[in-house]
């Protein structure tokens, strides 16, 4: 049973210019920071693909590219087989987003009904129809319709994020990018929200790209997980593969960082140092300065993604069969 690829990302690379000083511009010696380096993966229709990585690893940049907000320097992104940026230009991109900070993702000057109905602004719909679908959406995300005339600052963090989800869903998109949707919330509310997202996914047949730095959260909602480190995809596989059989040393490190309920069983993680600078990234495998298993080859050659099993791929010289 092979499922369709909804989104396909091939060899995606994104550089951000560092300084824009006059001398650099004139001498054309502008420095760049490689935020995403040759990232390829695909998102299957109906699945949740989790993206894990620490701050500065390029998660949010990846999200913004998949939303069509910024263009990559090279590489291709297709949505249902068509170029994503072409679809964005034609206003035919059925993608929506839920952002990390609910405080800034809702306009403080607008009422909830105007926030939720925003994606329908350019649709030819009567006011009544719009109102009806706003009420329906608010109910679907577990909010009462009385909230319609409120302003964002009158809502709790969880309610705000539900409003953001309602806005993302109202136009019935196919694909939703969730950029750390729960990291600004209390743990108890996080769980409610994650369950809501899972429920809505089933009801609407959605495909999620779930970005988080929290391994537990990602494992809870995802079907497959991709681990990115300093802009490179290091491991991708089904959740079970990554939980039970993490291969890449970085994935192992991440799993070890998950707090364990029993302190006796806790794995102590040694100080592995800092995230590498993206301006002068380490040669070869970007993880080698922090890697306990680093070999000579790791300093020279960047490893390619190798197939371990049907669902599991890893980019590490330890598993290079050749």
């Amino acid at each position: 049973m092979k499922r369709l690829n909804l989104v396909e990302v091939t060899n995606l690379t994104k550089d951000f210019p560092l300084s824009r000083g006059l001398i650099e511009v004139l001498s054309r010696k502008r420095k760049f920071m490689r935020v995403l380096d040759n990232v390829s993966f695909s998102v299957l229709k109906g699945e949740t693909l989790g993206i894990v990585g620490e701050s500065g690893s390029g998660k949010t940049t990846l999200a913004r590219i998949l939303l069509g907000l910024i263009k990559p320097n090279s590489g291709k992104v297709t949505f249902m087989g068509e170029d994503l940026f072409k679809l964005r230009k034609l206003n035919k991109l059925e993608v929506q987003a839920v952002f990390q900070d609910p405080d800034s993702s809702l306009d403080p000057m607008l009422q909830v009904k105007d926030i939720v109905s925003e994606p329908l602004l350019n649709e030819k719909m009567s006011k009544e129809e719009v109102k009806k679908s706003v009420i329906e959406m608010l109910n679907r995300v577990g909010l009462s319709e009385e909230i319609m005339n409120r302003y964002p600052f009158e809502l709790s963090g969880g309610q705000k994020q539900r409003v953001a989800i309602a806005r993302a869903l109202i136009k019935k998109p196919k694909f939703i990018v969730l950029d750390e949707p729960t990291s600004a919330l209390d743990v108890s509310i996080q769980a409610q929200l994650l369950n809501l997202l899972i429920k809505l996914q089933e009801e609407f047949g959605l495909t999620y790209l779930f970005i988080s730095h929290n391994v537990n959260v990602v494992n809870y909602v995802s079907d497959r997980v991709a681990v990115i480190y300093a802009g490179q995809l290091v491991e991708i596989g089904a959740v079970d593969d990554l939980i039970n059989n993490p291969l890449h040393p970085y994935t192992k490190l991440l799993s070890a960082c998950v707090p364990h309920p029993n302190p006796e069983n806790r794995i102590t993680v040694k100080d592995f140092g800092e995230v590498p600078s993206l301006i002068n990234p380490p040669s070869g495998c970007r993880f080698h300065p922090r890697c306990p298993y680093a070999m000579e080859i790791c300093k020279k050659i960047s490893p390619k993604l190798e197939k371990i099993s049907e669902t599991h791929w890893v980019a590490c010289h330890l598993f290079n069969k050749r």
């Binding site: 939303l67 991109l93 925003e118 350019n122 953001a164």
Partner: peptide
């Protein structure tokens, strides 16, 4: 801010975003 990004995701034009947000 996030709500401007969200408006862009919802295909609002720059003109609409300036007026509305």
């Amino acid at each position: 801010l996030g709500f401007v990004e969200a408006a862009k995701v919802s295909n609002l034009s720059s003109y609409q975003i300036i007026l509305r947000h």
